[in-house]
Design a protein around this nucleic acid. Structure first.
Lengths: 224, 224
DNA sequence: TTGACGGCCTTACGCCGTAAGCCTAGCTTC
DNA sequence: GAAGCTAGGCTTACGGCGTAAGGCCGTCAA
């Protein structure tokens, strides 16, 4: 697994393979340990060799984000817009949970790649096709993406992975808190979040459906 | 402005001043150029001296986030919850626009500081005081923060600051696009976003009010 | 056979965070 | 005052980072 490159005669390295390997490396150990040297090493090559295929590390990070978007299914056509947008939101969420570093890269990265553009174009196309006016499509686009990325921002930073670890972590947090200093947070954790059956991940669907329903009302009001 | 420390006899350096200077440095030139050496330099001190007051750079970044939260007004009590939550959302947004690096630091930073905890406790207190059940308060809390952070994530990454620059940037983007490859994005930009009077910042209020109204309906339905 | 060239390697530079240890101002204690 | 302690600075050094500059050689066209 240390070398993903066949040690063939020559020129077996290219931009695609570099990006694929970089994504794999980030998946395993995070962006912090994604260095030019580590990446080159996994490709069985020296760090400076990468610069013959890529202008610099920034370009690799740009490409990685677009690679993730390329793997996300586009909103399926032919479905009611709410269904399509719901499926699309869950698809993006699944992809960014598979590649938790991607959200962090999206911020601070200026220009989007072709897969990213195609994805967002398809989202807009779905809304427009369902009768959204241009201003209303802009509203919905901004709102849905904001909720999606914001939820992921919080979900990915939770200091635990599954439901099992929740109580341990929460216990630690509660112990660190000055007793009674944050009564409502304490109440929420002990009286709700720690109860069996609660998982923060479930909040996603609630908010998403609430937003979709509200958007539907807004579109209906507009079309009257 | 290069030294914010009086060169007094001794011990004029402390955690508070280090954090304040770090925030100032990040405001001016971003987190990328916030290095221990640059920070120490501005304080008129050598890099290693900082380690007598702070365990390491991570602790400084933690402290900076909490410093920003400390400057955000808590949701004002005595107001209807929708008004309080709206004001609070705009207050957070204003603060994170003043310190654009803060959102990036929040992600990847595990344990929140006291000001952050107090802020979120106050938000929860507002909702609970308005009659939100514990589960509904959790829903609203997650939804509002997700939208807030997600919108900021997008707004802060826009490659321009004011309305004036928009057309220049958009022109460049459109020129880079293969003609006709992204029809709906093109339509949105040329037929809406570039029109005079459009500003992405205005989308914030639309989404926020839509969410607040939808939450109000959800609470009313719950209380019946 | 030869020449050019593309693709990888070597070396080196100036950054970074920080471990380890020194130096001394200023206080505490007689 | 003198002695001694200690907190809070400073110096030095280490390993790792991204990448500029240039060398070396396998491959292929003429």
């Amino acid at each position: 697994m240390t070398s993903e490159r066949q040690p063939g005669p020559r020129g077996r390295l290219d931009r695609e393979q570099i990006l694929r390997t970089a994504v794999g490396l980030a998946d395993e150990s995070g962006t912090a340990s994604l260095t030019m040297r580590a990446l080159a090493d996994r490709l069985g090559v020296e760090a400076m060799s990468l610069y013959h295929h890529v202008p610099g590390k920034e370009a690799i990070l740009d490409g990685m984000v677009d690679t993730v978007f390329a793997r996300i299914a586009l909103p399926p056509p032919g479905l009611p817009w709410k269904t399509a947008m719901r499926q699309r939101a869950h698809a993006v969420r699944a992809a960014l949970r598979d590649h938790p570093w991607a959200l962090g890269l999206m911020e601070s990265r200026a220009d989007p790649g072709p897969a990213t553009l195609r994805h967002h174009d398809a989202v807009l196309g779905c809304l427009r096709g369902a009768g959204f006016s241009l201003p209303m499509a802009a509203h919905a686009f901004s709102l849905l993406d904001s909720y999606l990325y914001g939820f992921l921002l919080q979900e990915l930073n939770l200091p635990f992975d599954g439901a099992g670890e929740l109580d341990t972590v929460a216990d630690g947090i509660l112990r660190d808190m000055p007793a009674g200093a944050y009564p409502h947070l304490t109440e929420l954790i002990t009286g709700h979040a720690l109860l069996p059956g609660y998982a923060y991940a479930d909040e996603f669907a609630f908010g998403l459906d609430l937003i979709l329903d509200a958007l539907e009302r807004a579109v209906d009001a507009e079309q009257v």
